[in-house]
Amino acid sequence: MSDHSIKGKTVLITGGAKNLGALIARELAEYGAAGIAIHHHGDATKAAADKLVAELTGKGLKAVALQGDLSSAAANAKLFADTIAAIGKPDIAINTVGKVLKKPILDTTEEEFDSMFAINTKAAYFFIKEAGRNLNDRGKIVTVVTSLLGAYTPFYSTYAGSKSPVEHFTRAASKEFGDRGISVNAIGPGPMDTPFFYGQEAPEAVAYHKSAAALSAFSKTGLTDIEDIVSYIRFMVSDGWWMTGQTILVNGGYTTK
């Protein structure tokens, strides 16, 4: 078995109860993961997390649901400690947590700014820190960012702005953790066909986004399908280990750097 096979590995996924995170969990289970910790934020996602854990344990995996607001260093440290206690030291750590805000700069409040950077920047930083501290050697770290990092557009200043530091965190961590064989990457999907996207967009904006990618006509929805992102993440945490320190935009030609 390859050192970078998913088979027998232990996985932590934040935001893992629904949508992209849940599909990643199911995909890695199919490829042989032995244990998966599903993080979810609060009571609203508890039932979905518990249902997914029951599904995974029914397939013979170790699985656990862990709840928490990750916008503090202590919460990230606790998440990894609880993961280790429940299913063992992780080999793979994937952070899908994010918050989107579409709003003009002139209308953005200080509270909104602080919330965006707490979730998209601070949580990502301390997740990477704790992953570097707690992962087994030759582990894999992936953070989900956004293809808006390659866009020239109004209204997403706090969203793209709070995700962009993750590129720098990723590069630094890849250098600092590389002597243990740990790869660190970020992936930036285009607008995805999930409630995360639709809650911020007016119908005319949805119509634009569904036609903006070069390959839109070949997508099920015109948007980025989460299944396509999952296949890239699976590669990044297995045979794609040699790629490290990178932010990859996967969006069907929606934006490029």
Rank of each mutant, 00 (worst) to 15 (best):
G8P: 08
G8K: 12
T10M: 10
T10D: 05
T10A: 10
T10F: 07
V11E: 01
V11I: 02
V11R: 00
I13G: 02
G15V: 10
K18M: 12
G21E: 07
I24R: 14
R26P: 06
E27C: 07
E30F: 05
A33H: 04
I36S: 06
H39F: 09
G42K: 10
A44K: 08
A47T: 12
V53I: 14
V53E: 12
T57V: 14
G58W: 13
V64M: 13
G68C: 10
S71W: 08
S71Y: 07
A75E: 01
N76F: 02
A77M: 10
A77L: 10
L79F: 08
F80T: 11
D82G: 00
I87S: 06
G88W: 11
I92N: 05
I94L: 11
P104Q: 08
I105V: 15
I105E: 13
D107Y: 13
T108L: 02
E112T: 01
F113W: 15
F117L: 07
F117G: 03
A118K: 07
N120M: 07
A123N: 04
F127Y: 08
K129G: 01
E130I: 03
E130Q: 14
G132H: 02
R133D: 14
D137Y: 10
K140V: 02
V144H: 01
V144L: 06
Y152N: 12
P154V: 05
F155I: 00
Y156Q: 13
G161H: 12
K163M: 05
K163T: 03
S164H: 05
P165D: 03
V166C: 01
F169E: 03
R171G: 15
R171Q: 15
A172Y: 05
K175Y: 10
G181N: 06
I182T: 06
N185C: 06
G188R: 00
P189V: 01
P191W: 06
P195V: 07
F197I: 01
F197S: 04
Y198S: 02
Q200F: 09
A202C: 02
P203L: 14
A205L: 13
V206D: 08
Y208D: 06
H209A: 03
A214E: 09
T221A: 07
G222D: 00
D225P: 05
I226Y: 02
E227R: 11
V230G: 05
Y232E: 15
F235Q: 11
F235I: 14
M236I: 13
V237R: 08
S238R: 12
S238L: 12
D239N: 14
W242F: 08
W242H: 06
M243A: 11
M243T: 10
G245N: 11
Q246F: 00
Q246K: 02
T247Y: 04
T247K: 02
L249Y: 11
V250C: 05
V250R: 03
G253F: 04
Y254K: 09
T255A: 11
T256S: 15
K257H: 00
K257W: 00
